[in-house]
Structures are given as structure tokens and as C-alpha cells.
Simulated scan of single mutants.
Amino acid sequence: MQCSYFDAGVCRSCSLMGTEYTSQVLDKQSQCRALLAAYPGLHWLDPVTSVEQDFRNKAKMVVGGSVGSPTLGILDSEKNGVDLRQCGVLQPGLRDALPTIADFIALARIEPYDVTARRGELKYVLLTEALSGEIMIRFVLRSREAISRIHKHLPKLQHALPQARVISANLQPEHKAIIEGEQEIMLTPTSTLTMRTGDIDLQLGAKSFFQTNTAVAEQLYAQARQWSAEVNPRTVWDLYCGVGGFALHLADGQRTVKGIEVSPEAIESARASAQDAGLTNIRFVAADATRFVLDSKPADEPDLIVVNPPRRGVGQELSQWLETSSVTTVIYSSCNATTLATDLEAMPSFSPVRGRVLDMFPQTRHYETMLLLERR
């Protein structure tokens, strides 16, 4: 894939841009195998590849420029806005929506936030697109100053973008690198976006996490479902469950599934998805994953645990709990193979028997790794 922004030196976010795609995947596979070379019995399945472009279902666009001519993209080294609305890794529906959103910013007179001067209102526009073509739009604002004007002109945005099913404003008053604030103001009657993944409809709230690459996420969940079916556990815990992707795909009438996630909003989304799917043998709990397992009773320990932690991994406490628990099987999905290897060292009673690299993030050095771990 070639990118005019990368070639011009204005955006280097995709660090592997211009590298032949087959080489990207082979390098990721080689790096992951090297990190897990201590496990010679680990059988590697063929990597899951992606399309090279048009794959990102999310756009996190920094807003710069002026009220009348906003930029949507990134900031350069001088904190000036760089417009990237034709970014080739975004799904076409997101690219198509960006000019209309820029026009709306000008119409509603929402002043872009000036990082250097610490003034202005609009910091980011966050977009998510479902396979259906429906879109979630979130305006990240410094304050409520522009809310009334957004309300006033919202019908014009909805007329121009009828696929915009969910629109909200997030308030982030602090001047810091954290993108989102605590308060979300819904601007549409509908507050969730339906993300079809395999045969499951996941309901995404405004702050809900979902994988960046829908097609690869489907294969991630399908792989977990296949491994779970082979083990045929009676009980499953999905730790760091987010909106319930793994839990919902592993649930059926023959096993009990419990999803644990610290975000109450994500848990609400997971519960709505379970209800829509008619699943009655699944329960979701808003709790810290490590605290939840440490407080659990030995008699309640499941047969299989799925973990899908953030980049820092599951950490020492949870690894040690898994090591001493009665759990016989773990499916570990990781976005950081380095911390995955560290966690495995703390669980010597588990052997990784199968592994797979899934290229969730083409054009970058990042990837997803999934392992099937069995107790020795």
C-alpha cells in the first residue's frame, strides 16, 4: 500500500507503510515466535491476514485549523493541524463522512482546541463504523460552550449523514493526553451502535472498546469458539471482557459463561447484546478482573478462562492466581507478545499448545496473538 501522506512525510503513524504486506506478516510471525521460543511444543497455525487498506472501523481525528477551515487528522511537531481525511487505512464510509463533519464544525462554529494556547473547544472527533454502514460520531469538547449550537444544527448533520445512528459529545476539560473525559452527553435517542461480528450483534456504547479491524476480530472470536468447543468446558470466565465479544461467542445452551469488565458502560452493552441474542446462561459483572478472581471461592473456579488484557498483560497477581487455581484451560488473546511472554513465565503449570498471530493492525508493527494454554 502506498500513502501520499506518508510519502510526503506529514504522517508516519503507519510505520510499515510501503513495506510489502507479506513481509509485514512474516516479520510479525517471526517476532512472536522468537518471544515464545521457550515453548518448543507450541504449534503455530497459519497467521490470519487482513486487507491492506480500508480496514479500520475507527477514526480518532485530532481537530486543528480554524472554525471556518478545520483540519481532521493529527498535529505536527509545532502543534498545528494536519488534515488526513483521505487516510487510506480507514473504512471508506469513515472517509466519506469526514468532509460533512468538517462542514458541520464550521456551521456550528465550534472552535478547534489550540493545544499551545490552551483555548478553543473541539479537541477530537471520534468515529466508529459498523458493517451495516451505520456510524457513531463523538465530539470531544473542552466544555459545554458549543452544546447549544450543536443541538441547533444537528438536524442538518443528520440529514447530510443519515447513517449517523449515534451522536454524542464527550467533555474533557483537562489539558492532558487522555482523549476522553468522564461525562458523555447523548445527542441522539439511540445510544448504541450495533456491530455485527460473526453471528453475534454486539451493542457498542459511546465509550465501549471494540477491536479496530472487524474482519480480523471475527476470526479472533471464531478461533476462540473453536478451541472452546474442542475442550467443551462446563463453565467459562471471560476476563477483561469489554462488550462481551468472547463471552457471547462462547456461550451456548450447554455451558455457563461469566464476563468480567471494569467498565460499567461496557457491561451494560454486553448485557444488552446477550438479551438480544436470547442467551440466558451468560452473566456479566462490572468488576476489576484481578480483584474478582482473588475474591472468588475455589468451588466457583471455571474449567476455562479467556483473558484479553490491555497491553500491560494480566500481571503478576492474576498470573499467580491462574497458576494455583483449578482452571485447566486458558485462551490468552494478547495485543503485546512481550508482556504475554512475561505472564507465561509466571504460569509454569500451563503449556501453550497452539498459537496464532492475527494481523489486526496492517501497516504497523502491532499484531494480536492468541494462545491455547493447557495445564500440564
Rank of each mutant, 00 (worst) to 15 (best):
D201G: 08
A117R: 15
L171Q: 02
Q211R: 04
R142N: 14
K176R: 14
M186L: 10
A215S: 07
R196A: 15
R149Y: 02
G198T: 07
I135Y: 07
H175V: 04
T194W: 03
R225A: 15
I135A: 09
T116G: 02
K156S: 08
M186D: 00
A160K: 05
M195L: 15
M195D: 14
S143G: 06
L204V: 07
V166E: 07
R119A: 04
L161A: 01
L161G: 04
T197W: 07
S148T: 03
H159V: 08
P189L: 09
K176C: 11
S143C: 05
P155I: 07
P155S: 02
S148G: 06
H159Q: 14
A206H: 12
Q203G: 09
H175I: 08
S132A: 11
K207Y: 01
E218H: 11
N170E: 05
I179Q: 06
S208W: 14
N170A: 07
L141S: 00
S208M: 13
K123H: 03
A164M: 04
I178P: 01
R119C: 07
A164G: 00
A169E: 10
E129L: 09
V166W: 05
A117E: 14
E145C: 09
L193E: 10
Q223I: 10
D114Q: 13
E174A: 15
R225N: 15
M136K: 06
T190Q: 14
P173F: 09
A215C: 00
T197C: 15
M136I: 03
E180S: 12
E145G: 12
A222F: 08
E129W: 01
I137C: 05
L157I: 14
K123N: 06
V125E: 07
D199F: 13
L171Y: 02
V140L: 00
P189V: 13
F139T: 06
A222M: 04
Q211Y: 02
G120Q: 08
A206I: 12
E134S: 06
M186Y: 09
I167M: 09
T192G: 00
V140A: 01
I179A: 02
S191L: 06
G133H: 11
Q158A: 12
R196P: 12
T192R: 00
I185S: 06
V216M: 01
V125H: 05
Q211K: 03
G133E: 10
A206M: 13
I167F: 00
R118S: 11
T214R: 10
T212W: 11
G181P: 02
H159E: 14
S143N: 01
R144Q: 01
